[in-house]
Design a protein around this nucleic acid. Structure first.
Lengths: 189, 189
DNA sequence: TTAATTTGCCTAAATCGTTTAGGCAAATGG
DNA sequence: CCATTTGCCTAAACGATTTAGGCAAATTAA
């Protein structure tokens, strides 16, 4: 009987693709096994459980998203950096909806600390350097930006904007502009 | 055999309480049945499916949340209204985490349109009246506020603020202040 | 090259949640 | 008080998760 060449990494990749196709909550070890034409039990040599697979997908997505955001802000500052950062998040969520959903999986504290999640906060702080905010304002601003971008993406994905004839891209640009102005105003004070 | 006095409404209520205790994604017809000391199959006379039960919980939560927000902004305007509105959302999410999670369930368009979801947008527009924003800016602002409040609540619930020693309440107040200033600045233009 | 060991995928079976079909008894109402 | 409706039941199928134990392929060492 030929071997399928499975590994935790390969299963995680496949799970991520499955998530993008059918939604993260529809990811199941059974379906992943089907895609490799392998019996379900075989996956349990590589991942501990269904939950373990989901956590691995979440960690993958967090890393990909942080890499993309880091790329986006490299060589930019101020408003440019903010816009590029925002676009990185929104673009990733559009191209990889299932993976983006995965980034919201609740991780236990140790796993979260060891994940790319802290990098996301660091990247946000990198952008804020251009606005010269004192603490604790900088922390407040990290939370504002994280929440605003994430919340917008989620509402948009949930179809919350479908019943109003205003281009979501126009709203997004307006919001980025407004947040930039907000941060500059806070810097002055 | 005595009857348990079930109904769709009672099951929905129980499901909502269960959600607050164990998380919305852990809500199962099996567990609800257990709580009424009734066989699982009995629930299927009242709800069509497990999904149907979840949708009902989501609709209940959306209504409760809209009612609370409406109460909060009654008799207030401008910054006061904005702060009260924000507090209504955050308070509901803290007191009823499972129900709040339920409000994010993806509903099909008809169900969403018939739900309290449009009321949420209307309430936000009511607040924005105090800022005299022209269209399409008002729509942009609805999306900004919805996204920012929702995103903040979700990041906070996910434990995203745990590793920074800055009081989440202080950040929340700072954000509400900042958004108020942002909206007033946009009104001037 | 072959023997020993590890690794990878298998079969089998238990557990749990969902869902449908069909039945009996309690409530309801003429 | 009899007929009908309603509410909860038993029984059973299905699908996802998970564990135990086995055999064969891959790897390594003699």
């Amino acid at each position: 009987m030929a071997r399928a060449g499975l590994s935790a990494e390969i299963l995680t990749k496949a799970g991520a693709e499955l998530a993008d196709q059918v939604g993260f909550d529809q990811v199941t070890v059974t379906e992943v096994a089907r895609r490799f034409d392998v019996k379900v039990a075989s996956l349990y040599s590589h991942v501990k459980s269904s939950q373990d697979l989901k956590v691995r997908i979440a960690l993958l997505a967090l890393t990909e998203l942080a890499d993309r955001a880091a790329d986006a802000i490299a060589g930019r500052a101020g408003r440019d950096a903010l816009a590029a950062f925002a676009e990185a998040y929104r673009g990733y969520a559009r191209e990889h909806p299932g993976r983006y959903q995965a980034t919201r999986l609740r991780l236990d504290p140790e796993t979260a600390a060891a994940s790319a999640a802290p990098r996301h906060a660091q990247l946000t702080r990198a952008i804020l350097r251009g606005y010269h905010l004192p603490e604790p304002d900088q922390t407040h601003a990290v939370r504002l930006l994280g929440g605003a971008f994430h919340g917008y993406i989620e509402l948009e994905a949930a179809g919350g904007f479908a019943h109003t004839p205003v281009d979501p891209q126009a709203s997004w640009d307006w919001i980025v502009d407004s947040l930039d102005a907000l941060l500059r105003a806070r810097a002055d004070h």
